[in-house]
Amino acid sequence: MSQPILEIKNLHAGVEGKQILKGVDLTINAGEVHAIMGPNGSGKSTLAAVLAGRDGYEVAEGQVLYCGKDLLEMDPEERAREGVFLAFQYPIEIPGVNTTYFLKAALNEIRKHKGLSELDAVEFIELVKEKMKILHLPEDCLKRSVNDGFSGGEKKRNEIFQMAVLEPKLAILDETDSGLDIDALKVVSEGVNKLKRPDNAQFVITHYQRLLNYIIPDYVHVLFDGRVVKSGGKELALELEERGYESLVGHELQPA
């Protein structure tokens, strides 16, 4: 077995002095899809933010290794260049920054980092056209400013489209299903599934089981009060759906 893509060890983290993650342990290997589920306030978004290097989150204890390297030491752009991608729960609108220009700059930064040649405009457009088909994105999205005036569904598709272009080793999908109708959800999930490869991994953060009907995880973890309280196969998601978090975690938490 080669080195894991992500190893989270005893991670304690919080924001504004409030402790939110209280010892998370989790390992993700290449080729795997992991889902982490949990009720509101369990720490899902904090976990995504800490992994992606968002400002303002303090790590009190523990370690996160990405392909053996200390992830928490890296700036957000370094993480991205190393192959970590966060699909935002609320993608940011950036008026005036053209989507094509932005994405080409991002891809070339990543390619430079990998020691690959930068793509010129023609090569980039070819690549992008191919990737757009996966997400059924209208071409004019590329001509518009980043997420500016996009509908909720378009924003989420645009996130996965960026993921398709940047080809991360580790994709973290933060509540990608929120705000999507069923058709958009299918398109987005299909996109994610097509991007799955033996050498990459996907980490799906979600509140609802619904998304996991389309993105089938290999492992499901339940996050509650800042800790992973239960891990299992995909059937765990269904169990949660039927019985709810309360019964499950209530039972699990008693011995502690």
């Binding site: 400002d55 957000p76 752009e77 991205a80 932005f102």
Partner: peptide, 8 residues
């Protein structure tokens, strides 16, 4: 942050 999270 969004731009940085994409490698920029």
């Amino acid at each position: 942050y969004y731009l940085r999270s994409r490698g920029i």
